[in-house]
Design a protein around this nucleic acid. Sequence first.
DNA 1: ATGTCTTTGTGAACGCGTGCACAAAGATGG
DNA 2: CCATCTTTGTGCACGCGTTCACAAAGACAT
Lengths: 266, 266
Amino acid sequence: MATGRTHRPATRSRGIPEATVARLPLYLRALTALSERSVPTVSSEELAAAAGVNSAKLRKDFSYLGSYGTRGVGYDVEYLVYQISRELGLTQDWPVVIVGIGNLGAALANYGGFASRGFRVAALIDADPSMAGKPVAGIPVQHSDELETIVRENGVHIGVIATPAGAAQEVCDRLVAAGVTSILNFAPTVLSVPDGVDVRKVDLSIELQILAFHEQRKAGEEAAARTAAGVPAPAATDATTAADGAKRTSATDQGPDGDVPAVMPA
Amino acid sequence: MATGRTHRPATRSRGIPEATVARLPLYLRALTALSERSVPTVSSEELAAAAGVNSAKLRKDFSYLGSYGTRGVGYDVEYLVYQISRELGLTQDWPVVIVGIGNLGAALANYGGFASRGFRVAALIDADPSMAGKPVAGIPVQHSDELETIVRENGVHIGVIATPAGAAQEVCDRLVAAGVTSILNFAPTVLSVPDGVDVRKVDLSIELQILAFHEQRKAGEEAAARTAAGVPAPAATDATTAADGAKRTSATDQGPDGDVPAVMPA
DNA sequence: ATGTCTTTGTGAACGCGTGCACAAAGATGG
DNA sequence: CCATCTTTGTGCACGCGTTCACAAAGACAT
């Protein structure tokens, strides 16, 4: 899980568990694919397989939304698409601003999965004056000075932060002050926000580190036992497909970290 | 939560709970920042605040790793950095390949948070022949034909998929066949992999949809009640900072979805 | 050496999420 | 109209994760 919610301690917002909400987009994606193939109905078993979850879980999730299935038949695809979209609030238009137009910000601006879900990129904002006016994904980049104006005039409630870690909190504060109440944070920092503001974070390197943990485990316990002694990491061992692999001895003395995504400052 | 593990049903790998593993990178980041400021020790309370978690949770997490703290004082920053790094397997070198060098793939290649964590981008792979040889982040892009060779010769165990959804499963299969056992998937698809292979996924639009859900909730129940009728979404309502805001009526008839990240095919 | 003060490490309780397993519901065929 | 078959919806039990609260442990001052 690349993310985790901040504030609001597990308040299940009106009966729908948080875990269920997190799976609704998954179901929606699978259902959309079925819809495009003009499949009229789908059983919980089939849909669960397509979404990569347990069928009992899926049925329980849907039961929180109401009884939208027909026993002996399954669920009506189109109807379910509508119900989930409505529940997630995707039937309305969500203007979004992206702050920090570096590599990642540009990737997000170009991401097709937004527009098709009711999200509209209202503006791209960057602190670099030389980027002002330059079109990215067909949208001209605007300077940070315009942030407050843009947010207010477009009624933006959702902001995406793709700046370096150092700039994230300040950008966050300004977004919140201007009226944003939901933030998707790609900067590797913990943002502090007032109550009532939701923050979700995506940290690319965290995911990789979790994978590394399990990968190390798979590599066998003997290697772990060896480094568990005082030995300061005797280079990679590669029990299985050991090729040459340019090895490095340690990762701690690796120069300045900074821990920033490769994006332009904002 | 942008992610979720696939397969391996909650097996706590040698006593360390999955939830704890997922937080270790958070602690590590906070500790690294302290280390750079030459802070010698830190209390669970301070570190928890910096990492954005509960202090009791942090102490329990650390208790799974062993007793590394000193009562009345706190934790030794440097020692803890080393212990967590070792536990996560970051003291060794992890060669990684990125497949699909579009906007997102390029952003990942440029991402600074990898190298500082023991991850080394061994190769960039794309299916587009015209990209072959073109340097991205200082690394020449190689054609997909080379995938198996690259993985084998570099002893790569971790692969990152940043291709469109349509190409993801095939890329995944080839990576696994070549020896990759951990995959970080940015393509909006459910990947099926054999047992023993870990998959973590990051879906940008899912995070945004979860935010939209809570945002809709905040906007008040009256608007939800209105659309709950047969009315096909009466445009945005903006209870609070209602500006003009270019409104759109519906998001369902929005043209072809495709649901692909804006990257080149691989 | 002894007492006080700070902070860790953890036992225990609680709540949420998951998955089993089955009864109820409806479709379908005779 | 009845029997059978499929599939939903959910009661229930279990396990994981979180949090509280406190005893144990060590630092530090006197």
